[in-house]
Structures are given as C-alpha cells and as structure tokens.
Design a protein around this nucleic acid. Structure first.
Lengths: 340, 340
DNA sequence: CTGAAAGCGCTTACAG
DNA sequence: CTGAAAGCGCTTACAG
C-alpha cells in the first residue's frame, strides 16, 4: 500500500490526487476542508486518502503555513517531581490538536539552555513552555523577545509574560483549615528555607488562618528535618502541638516517623498535613499523608491551551494566573469529623 | 538585525547570499561545507551568516534531506522513575548533534500510542526510542515495519529488534557479593512479584551467588511488604538472617524501618542492600541504602547513539544488549571492610 | 570556482 | 467547480 504510485518512500498528495482523478490543488483543498468544490469530489478525495492511508508531510505543510505543530518544553527540574505532571497535562491537552512536544532538560546551565532553544527555534516550534521547580526563580535563559509565544508554568516569568502558578496561599489555607476542622488547637508549621517565596506565602497564609500565636520552624526540604523538628518540639518544655502543617511531604514523612517513634499517635494525638501529594512519599507514610495537591497536571493542560491559543494568534492577557490547590484526604488528618 | 533583507519574519539564506554577494547555491554549499569553492568565498559567507545570526530553517532542510533532526521517545512509564534518567541520557547524547526529542507518554493505551506515533511519523522523525518500565512487557503498539529505525530501551522489543536493557543478573550478583563481603552468612532475598522477569533473574543470580540454601520471599513492590517480610522472618522460629538483599529500594526501606523498629541495628546486626538507587528513597532511609544502580542514563545515551547511527544508515546488529549495573555504597551495607 | 535550475511535498491566490 | 502556477526555504545535480 505504501508503494502505490511507484515511487520509493512516502505516499504523497500526488498519489492521492492521481487516484482520485483530480489535481493536487483540488486534493489539498478537499483534504483541508478549504476551497469550494462539489461535495462529491471532496468525499471522493477523502475516501481515497483514507484508503491508502495518506498523511500529509508536516515538514512541507509547516514550511508554508508557518505552523509546525510542535512546541518546546524547557525545564530545569531534572528530578521530574514537578515537570512530569506538568508535561503530562501539556501533552494530554495538545496531542488531540496534533501537536507534539519537545522536551528539553537544561540543568541550570545557560549554555545548554541556549543550545536547546536554538534547536527548537530552528525547528520552528509554534511556542515554548518554560517550566521549573521554583516560582521565584527564572530559567537561566532569556525567552523574551523571541519570535514565538512563550508561557511560563511553575517558574518565574518576566512581568509582561503569561505565567501560570499554583495558589500556595490558598493551598496552605486548605491545610490549616483541615487541621482546625480536625479539632487541633495548637498548630505548628514546619517548613523549608525562608528563601523560597512559596515557603513565605504558605507560612503567611498559615499565620492568618490559625487562631492564636503562630509558630513557624524553618529547615530544609528533607525527612531528616521533619524528624529533627519533632525532636525540637518535644524535647523542650511547654505545650506540645496537636497539629503540624508541613511545608512538603518529605518533611511531613519525617515528622510522622518522628512522632511514631516517640509513641505519639497520628492523627489521634497529633494530626499532620503535608504539601505536594507526592505519591511515593505520601502514600507510603504510616499513616498515609493528608496533603495538598497543586494540581500540576491541570496547570500543564492550561499551559498547553494557552500556548496553542497564542500560537494561533489569539489574544492572551499577560499576568500571573494562580491555579487552585486541592486537599487530598488520607489518614494523617481526617479533617471535619462527620456530624454526629 | 533580524530585519536585514527587509522582509518580515525570519532571516533566510537569500539574505545571507545577497549580503555575501554570492548565489544561494554557493551560500548553501559554503555553509554546509559541501561543494568546492575558494576558501575565501566560503569564509566570507560563513562570516556573514555568523554576523547576522543566520540559522537554516530545519523544516525546509528536512524536506530535502529527509532528516528532521528529531527523534521520538515513547514511554508508558508515566511515573517517570525509569524514563526520566533514560530521557536525560538520550537528550544529553543527541543535543550536540542538533537533534531534539519528542516525548510521548502513552499510558498503556494503544489508541493514544497510535496517535502519538502517527504524529511523530507525520513530522518525519529520524527514529523512535521505545522505553518503558518493564523488561518483559512490550509497549501497546507495534513499531516493527515502520519506515524509521526503532530502538527499545528498558522495554521488551521484538526478537529482531535492537534492544537495550540492564544486566539484572550481574546487578544482583553485585548486591549479593556486597553482603557476603560484609561477612553475612545467612542472606535472604526479599523481592517483588514472581511474574516479573527481572525478579526471576535477580533471584536466580542470588541463588547462584550465595553459599548455603537460598531463601526468596516474594511480595509486592512496596515499603509495606518490606516491613511485613521482616515481621515474617523475625516472628517465626529458627535462624535469623544477617543480610537481606531487597528487590528494590522501596522494599529495602521497609525492611530497614522494620529492623530499626525491632531494635536491630543496620548494618551491624543485619546488612541490607537495595536495587534501583532511587535517590528519594535510598538517600532518605536511615541509614542510607547501599543499592544497585542500573545506570539508566548511560542506557539512554547508548539508545541515543544507536538510533542516531541507524538513522544515518549505519548498520547496527539487532539483539539484546545488556548494560552493566553498578553498586552504590552507602551505609546499609559497607561491603568489604578495609584490610587491617 | 560559481550559479541557474529543478525539486522536496505541500498550500494558496488566481484564472478559467 | 477545478486546475496551473507560484512559492515556502532550502539542497543538489548539472552546466558553464
């Protein structure tokens, strides 16, 4: 079937046209639903194309239409914790539109970023999505002034850029609320380095949400810090917390492990809520973590939708779009008890 | 600078030719290092191109040369545990050759796989790398008989395919040896489901490597199973193991946690070795895990090298290539004590 | 040593 | 309603 037309290699529109007994211009128009012609001719061409399995060469088409149906995804999150779901969302959103995505992992290396961007530009990508792992850091490459639209997803963009991010304050509010609803009266926040904007935002939201004096413990993003924080809290004198809101799931896991090792029951004695919903840690913790999900996949879909719109010339308002987080209820904090 | 030539849009070879005072054919040949011409002309053209920042349109070039400088990576490992390092290796190997990679996540959905493959073929990819999460399962799409070369990396390929995989037996041997070197006399293997080929291979290698009667406990790939296995081993009568080789790091983490909770010291009383070197779990375990690394990034590089070779028409022997694993020494098993 | 011409596989005004 | 022609931005025989 691939050899119809006698030529070696791919089936072209010439073959389809010949088989349908029309010119290639007519064939092209029939297939693209453009131009005017009798319904009968159009159908005949379509049928032939269908039968021989004709698929237009995207390179040739792109050369003329200036649309390559490809976009580039740039990320410095080599670990994939954040980029993977974002990527999945983008791909899911775009594959139905026939667009494929180039993945370029640049690890904070400006040189390499440049090489990747140039390669993408050479290939006439219709747009670029810049993604990362921090909302307060830009990728090590300047994407403004490029001839293609760019959207920033889960990384910092320029002020006049189109940026998508999670609403960390709302997420933190969700977490704090959950603890309060579970009846906690003394809630402590154990989190990451103060240098992260998201840490500050989450902490602020926590401070505003709780009744009574807030207490925020800063450390690093690790289980070890969670363990250590529990030691600090329990080895000192005074009141013990009955609820702990953690800056991420790794810290939460450390906290839960630390608590268990002291014979403190979770959630009965102390309820714990994490952040990230990183399955590998949240689900394996004993008990499994109630945690905040940033809905990164949805964020990815939205990013895909936006670049596509922009690449099609539709107007998109610049600015930062905050996407809501949601709470995933597992067992480390049960939230509102069902009414008696 | 982008507006030299007066035309809107991208800079083309016409502009470069005009600026250098040569025809476009000469310009093309000068830039590609082909044809013959005076060194002086060639240099002049190159200099002009350099100055105006000319980059040839890959679509146009691909249309003629039949090389798009893109390859597709298909994977059903949506979690990214295996694909991410493979991807990083591929990208690292290929970016220097100007090739970009399309990432297509298909989650065991034949429909979606087909759509992605078609999209890649439309875009004239130079080759496809099929990747996955199991060595004994094929992706839900038939890639044989495609017009482009395919290499299978960390997934099952057809018998006449070019396949890259880790040498699990050698990896298991490394792990078992490490335990023996550490002085363990009674080594048990706690691993995943027997239905996995890699489980059987690792278990076989373990059986062959140890002195004395082997004992293999099959379960699922989770921490919970590791915990449970320790309970089984210690709650029954008879000899206790002094070394445990685990089928993956998650199980190993469960084992180490279970041991610690019983007051058994790792590695002093019982040494433990994992498999995967999944940083997030191996490094956070207390104590950190000694584990087998499948060198997936290297595998990715190799896959990249091979598709590239094949796409350039170089001959590549079909068959399965096993790449060696290596042992990452942390604290759960110290291996050979330094000689006194 | 250099350039005019043909052509890759399409699409899109423009005629008829 | 349909097709011939021009052209997207390049490369590659082929002349000169």
């Amino acid at each position: 079937m691939n050899t119809i037309g006698g030529k070696r290699g791919r089936l072209t529109i010439h073959t389809v046209a010949a088989l349908a007994g029309v010119s290639i211009s007519t064939a092209s128009k029939a297939l693209n639903g453009s131009g005017r012609m009798s319904e009968e001719t159009r159908e005949r061409v379509k049928k032939v194309a269908q039968e021989v399995g004709f698929r237009p060469n995207a390179l040739a088409r792109g050369l003329i239409t200036k649309r390559s149906f490809t976009i580039g995804l740039l990320t410095n999150d080599t670990y994939g914790r954040f980029t993977l779901p974002v990527m999945a969302g983008i791909s899911e959103e775009l594959v139905g539109h026939g667009v494929s995505v180039f993945l370029c992992a640049i690890e904070d290396d400006p040189e390499r970023a440049r090489v990747h961007v140039d390669a993408m530009l050479d290939k006439s990508v219709d747009g670029i999505i810049a993604s990362g792992k921090r909302l307060d850091r830009q990728l090590p490459v300047d994407l403004s002034g490029l001839s293609v639209p760019v959207v920033y997803a889960f990384t910092k963009g320029p002020v006049d850029g189109v940026t998508l991010r999670s609403d960390d304050e709302q997420g933190a509010r969700l977490a704090t609320r959950c603890l309060m609803d579970a009846g906690c009266r003394r809630i402590v926040h154990v989190t990451g380095p103060k240098t992260f904007q998201s840490v500050r935002e989450r902490a602020d939201a926590y401070r505003t949400a709780i009744d009574g004096p807030p207490e925020v413990l800063h450390g690093v993003w690790s289980e070890a810090w969670g363990l250590e924080a529990v030691a600090q809290l329990w080895d000192r004198g005074g009141d013990k917390p009955d609820g702990i809101f953690c800056g991420n799931d790794q810290i939460a896991r450390g906290v839960v492990d630390g608590l268990r090792e002291r014979g403190i029951r979770v959630p009965d004695d102390v309820a714990v809520v994490g952040f990230d919903n990183w399955d590998i840690v949240a689900a394996q913790t004993r008990p499994p973590l109630t945690t905040v999900d940033m809905n990164l996949k949805t964020l990815g879909r939205e990013a895909g939708r936006l670049v596509l719109a922009m690449s099609e010339g539709r107007e998109v308002q610049p600015g930062i779009r905050k996407l809501p987080c949601s709470l995933v209820l597992r067992q480390s904090c049960r939230g509102l008890e069902p009414p008696a």
